[in-house]
């Protein structure tokens, strides 16, 4: 059975559910503490996940201190070797501060996840949003490989989730888009609230050029089961959720399961 390593930093708080949904997807998973680079490099893994949370309480800015932990040296190396690496929420912030995404010059900071921009509010926002994959995402990115191109919902929960790039890089970024925020019927988000944080180009997830590293702000591990979809959700998934039988609501996958299914397929899980 393939194995994924979930890397816990001081202040991570989504490590258990992330490890759980990986297991449920047919991938063995183990949680490693920030100071277990030795144990991790002895065992290695087939994929790496940096879970959500508040590493170092987002002090200075989200993700920056964790990106300097020496366990990230190892993750960096593995990413360069082409191993699938996923950062969810705070994990995404760590990846962008590590220079793994967009990764034009790996290790160099070329993007930012800045504070949410929203009318009349600042700080944290948790809500469900609709997403769809970028043009090259399904083909390139193991984590997104099981998507079919339709809009699907996931929850977001963050205070610093606005992707920002330098003006001169804006064209280059387009081929790195993993997911974008959209309306329930799949058209591009036109500002708040469908784009919940002011991300440029409506970007919700960003990958490196090879596609093996993905930094995503939404939380697929919180929407693994159909019963986790809110009952008042609009669109296809809302209808599916409201009209499901007792059997289906338990057994049918939620939209977040597609992300882990993609990885499982990539790693050869039947």
């Amino acid at each position: 059975m393939p194995c994924a390593a979930v890397i816990r930093f001081p202040g991570s708080n989504c490590e258990f559910e992330t490890a759980r949904v990986l297991r449920n997807s047919g991938i063995d998973s183990r949680i490693y503490n920030w100071n277990e680079i030795g144990r991790l490099s002895d065992n290695k893994a087939d994929a790496y996940v940096l879970p959500g949370g508040f590493s170092f309480q987002d002090r200075i800015r989200a993700g920056v201190i964790a990106s300097r932990e020496n366990i990230m040296d190892f993750v960096f190396e593995e990413a360069m070797n082409g191993k699938p690496v996923l950062g969810i929420c705070n994990g995404a912030q760590v990846l962008i501060e590590s220079g793994l995404v967009p990764g034009w010059k790996p290790g160099s900071v070329q993007g930012a996840l800045a504070g949410n921009l929203a009318p009349g509010r600042s700080g944290y926002l948790s809500r469900w949003v609709y997403l769809k994959p970028g043009k090259e995402a399904v083909a390139k990115c193991p984590w997104l490989s099981a998507l079919e191109g339709d809009a699907f919902p996931l929850p977001i929960a963050h205070a610093e989730g606005r992707f920002v790039f330098r003006e001169e890089d804006m064209d280059k970024v387009k081929s790195h888009i993993g997911l974008t925020y959209c309306t329930p019927d799949g058209s591009a988000a036109d500002g708040w609230p469908d784009n919940p944080n002011g991300s440029v180009l409506n970007i919700a997830a960003l990958m490196n050029a090879e596609g093996n590293v993905l930094a995503m702000m939404p939380h697929p591990e919180r929407s693994y089961h159909l019963w986790q979809v809110p009952p008042d959700m609009q669109g296809f998934w809302g209808d599916k959720r409201r009209n499901s039988s007792l059997k289906d609501i338990e057994e049918q996958p939620g939209p977040g399961a597609i992300i882990f299914k993609g990885l499982a397929k990539y790693l050869g899980v039947k």
Partner: peptide
């Protein structure tokens, strides 16, 4: 809802109904 929108009601991945849904 505006108050609840600041709260993380879904961490741990076991939430069935968030505030306001039921």
């Amino acid at each position: 809802n505006h108050i609840w929108s600041y709260y993380d009601s879904e961490v741990q991945g076991v939430t069935r109904f968030r505030p306001g849904e039921a």
